[in-house]
Computed example of a mutant assay.
Amino acid sequence: MGIGGCIILFAVGAILTFGVDWHLSGVNLDVIGVVLMAAGLLGVVVYAGVLRRRRLVVGRPIDETLIEERRTRGL
Rank of each mutant, 00 (worst) to 15 (best):
V46N: 12
P61T: 02
I32H: 14
V46L: 07
V34A: 10
I3S: 11
V27G: 00
V58D: 12
P61R: 03
G5I: 08
L16K: 09
I32R: 14
V44L: 12
H23Q: 14
V45K: 11
V27L: 04
I67R: 13
T72V: 13
R55T: 07
V20Q: 09
T65H: 04
A11K: 10
D21M: 09
G43A: 09
I15S: 10
L9Q: 06
H23S: 13
A48N: 11
V20R: 05
R52D: 03
L66P: 00
H23R: 11
V27E: 03
I7F: 07
I15N: 03
R55N: 14
F10R: 05
E64W: 01
A48I: 07
V46M: 09
L56W: 12
E64C: 00
G13W: 01
W22T: 10
S25K: 15
S25G: 01
L9S: 02
P61C: 01
D30S: 00
R54H: 05
R73Q: 01
T17L: 12
L51E: 12
L75Y: 15
A11I: 09
E69Y: 11
G4L: 13
V35R: 09
Y47P: 01
G2I: 01
G74H: 14
T72K: 03
I7H: 04
G5E: 15
R55P: 04
L51C: 05
A11Y: 05
G19H: 06
R73S: 00
G40D: 11
R73G: 07
N28K: 15
E69N: 10
R71W: 10
V58R: 00
L66H: 04
V20L: 06
R71S: 00
V31L: 15
F10S: 06
I62F: 02
G43Y: 02
M37L: 08
L51M: 14
G40E: 12
V57H: 13
A38R: 01
I8Y: 07
I3R: 12
V50K: 13
L29T: 02
M1H: 13
R54T: 12
I8P: 08
M1R: 10
G59D: 15
L29S: 08
G40N: 08
V20E: 03
A11M: 06
Y47N: 05
I3A: 13
G40Q: 10
A11C: 11
V57F: 06
Y47F: 04
A14Y: 09
V34Y: 05
G19F: 04
I62Q: 02
A14L: 15
P61K: 01
G74C: 11
A38N: 00
L24N: 02
G26S: 01
G5V: 06
T65E: 08
L56H: 11
I15M: 06
E68H: 08
G26A: 05
I15A: 08
Y47L: 03
G40R: 05
G43C: 11
L75A: 13
R54F: 07
L36K: 06
M37N: 06
A48D: 10
D63E: 03
E69L: 13
I7T: 04
L36W: 05
A11L: 09
G74S: 07
G33M: 15
G4I: 12
G13I: 02
L24P: 01
E64Q: 07
D21H: 15
D21N: 15
